[in-house]
């Protein structure tokens, strides 16, 4: 269990904001922090990982105190078992893939983890390459592997996939779930992509102006459980085509593209890239063995 109870006055371009929040995250959960830019999500994660010092409060992880302003405890980042992945990869450009991973090794740490991670991330063949020769998806796999070198218990993913194209994003979402399960991590994601959040997370916290304003399971949170329709998915609008008096809307759900016929009242409110809920009654679909 991660227990965060933090107060911090943050200065930004718009003035001051007081971050004041309490978060409890069960071990092994995949949670998402959701909210507008500047709401305090990244600052919260920086305080958890020890990169930013809270003004007041405490952080305990599995009963161990990482930070306590009253008792003057503040573990340095290296003592906290946290892996951190950023949107911009933050790889060392002058090092090869393998060297980027090796750089993260702690003193006296057994280096067999490097090969294990290279294999798991399917990076073995690329291990002598420099980051600049890799695609965005490959770079992010290197960054993820590097975050796991020190065998963290908590993995922080700060908009890790938002710079990638849709196809690569879907692929890496699967990969994030695999990592989460294989390494028994507690994972904290920052994302704005509702399809991604619903797919990956057990629980969502919405943060606004430095405070938690709402929490719930991903499908409750985004209202996906609010109709009696049982045949329902969330996805992303890929294409809207007018045909005759109707509209055909292509929606990416997981890695399948489905089509929904729609009247113009709904079609006019949609644009490519929108996150949508697709629902029908359980009575309608046909099911067949393949």
């Amino acid at each position: 269990m991660i227990r965060l109870n933090l107060k911090k006055t943050l200065k930004s371009i718009g003035g001051e904001m007081v971050l004041d929040l309490e978060l409890n995250i069960a071990k092994g959960q995949f949670v998402t922090l959701f909210g507008e830019s500047g709401a305090g999500k990244t600052s919260t994660l920086r305080m958890l990982s020890g990169l930013l010092k809270p003004d007041m409060g405490s952080i305990t992880v599995d009963g161990r105190t990482w930070f306590d302003s009253n008792r003057n405890i503040n573990l340095i980042p290296q003592q906290r078992k946290v892996g951190y992945v950023f949107q911009d990869y933050a790889l060392f450009p002058n090092m090869t893939v393998r060297q980027n991973l090796e750089y993260a090794l702690q003193k006296y740490q057994d280096n067999s983890i490097i090969q294990e991670l290279l294999d798991f991330a399917q990076l073995s063949e690329l291990q002598q390459r420099k980051p600049e020769t890799l695609s965005g998806g490959q770079k992010q796999r290197v960054a993820l592997a590097r975050a796991l070198v020190q065998r963290p218990e908590i993995l922080i993913l700060d908009e890790p996939l938002s710079a990638l194209d849709l196809k690569m994003r879907i692929k890496l979402q699967e990969y994030l779930l695999q990592i989460h399960k294989k390494y028994k991590l507690t994972t904290i994601l920052v994302s704005h992509d509702i399809g991604e959040i619903v797919k990956l997370s057990d629980c969502v916290f919405e943060i606004q102006n430095g405070k938690v304003i709402k929490k719930g399971t991903a499908s409750d949170f985004f209202g996906l459980n609010k109709t009696s329709a049982k045949f329902r998915f969330s996805g992303e609008v890929l294409k809207i085509e007018k045909e005759d008096v109707i509209y055909v809307i292509s929606v990416l759900i997981g890695n399948e593209i489905i089509k929904v016929v729609s009247d113009r009242t709904e079609a006019n409110e949609l644009k490519v890239g929108d996150q949508v809920l697709v629902a029908s009654k359980a009575f309608n679909p046909i099911i067949q063995k393949i």
Binding site: K226, T227, S228, A229, A279, K281, F283, N284
Partner: peptide, 8 residues
């Protein structure tokens, strides 16, 4: 009747 969805 099987086409009517209820949304509470």
């Amino acid at each position: 009747l099987n086409e009517i969805i209820l949304a509470p």
